[in-house]
């Protein structure tokens, strides 16, 4: 798929997120937007998948460690055909298969249950080591937040993954520079992020996390490394794509008014 087509998909996923949050009156919009381009690149270009066979043993795996960004992941799964788009608008309601945070047994196409921060790299490592033990050649991708790097378990997993030379594991760090309580610089101290992953023995790249061509190239580079896991530090913008969400951290979890909804859809190239 060419870059323009992928960019169009990424915009449509953001529009679906706006629609979901607006209609269901809940969910995390701006953390979804900062990872929208990474998820688009993974699901519509990079990953080996078969939506008609969600449990296919040789599929690539994806772990959304920052589980609260799940609206955009659900939108991607629907667009891939794992379930009908209309079901997106049952998000967080009783009897919906779309839980507030990802729950793999309920949602087709979802590989990992997440939500509590700091756990996704370990889960991804387990999947990556299982590929080695079972002599499978699938890849495992995970996205963590930057605030999430405060969880010690991330670094337990980082140490173990490089010890095991788990080169089939690639972790994207969504470096949008915000966490719930403010900028990551104010609240915690993850910087310099690259040096830390490097020190733990990972192959490290830094890219613009909204440039799909850079995302594809970085994954290609990661695939060439066969003795280390890969970390891709993605410089991203929380709320990317909608002007009034950028720089306004309340959109971490906030519901659109009618006016905001219309403006957001318009800015994302949609018609209201």
């Amino acid at each position: 798929m060419d870059i323009q087509a992928l960019q169009d998909i990424s915009l449509s996923l953001r529009r679906d997120v706006v629609e979901m949050v607006y209609r269901t009156k809940d969910g995390h919009p701006s953390p979804s937007f900062s990872v929208a381009d990474i998820i688009t690149a993974l699901y519509f270009e990079i990953m080996r998948l078969d939506p008609s066979n969600p449990d296919w043993e040789d599929r690539d795996r994806f772990v959304l460690s920052k589980g609260h960004s799940c609206p955009v992941l659900y939108a991607a799964l629907a667009k891939k055909g794992y379930f009908p788009r209309e079901e997106l608008f049952t998000l967080r309601y009783l009897n919906s298969h779309l839980q507030g945070h990802p729950y793999a047994p309920k949602t087709k196409g979802l590989d990992a249950t997440t939500g509590s921060l700091g756990n996704g790299v370990s889960i991804g490592l387990g999947m990556a080591l299982a590929a080695r033990i079972r002599r499978k050649d699938y890849q495992v991708y995970a996205i963590t937040g930057d605030g999430e790097l405060g969880e010690g378990m991330i670094w337990e997993a980082a140490m173990a993954a490089s010890h095991h030379k788990a080169s089939n594991l690639t972790v994207f760090i969504d470096n949008n520079n915000y966490q719930s309580g403010g900028t990551v610089g104010e609240v915690s101290g993850p910087y310099p992020i690259e040096d830390k992953w490097q020190a733990f023995g990972w192959h490290v790249q830094t890219i613009d996390g909204h440039d799909i061509a850079q995302i594809l190239k970085a994954v290609e580079n990661a695939r060439l490394v066969n003795d280390k896991p890969s970390a891709i530090v993605c410089k991203t913008v929380k709320g990317n794509g909608v002007s009034f969400m950028v720089g306004e951290n309340s959109w971490h979890k906030r519901v659109y008014t009618d006016e905001e909804y219309k403006q957001a859809i318009k800015e994302l190239g949609g018609a209201v």
Binding site: R61, V63, A104, D111, A112, T113, N119, V121, S122, I123, G124, L125, G126, M127, A128, L129, A130, A131, I133, R134, V140, G152, M153, E156, A157, A160
Partner: peptide, 13 residues
């Protein structure tokens, strides 16, 4: 904690 997380990934695979 990492050990149990890894077990989750192994069992899911």
């Amino acid at each position: 904690q990492n050990g149990v997380g890894v077990c989750s990934g192994l069992a899911a695979s």
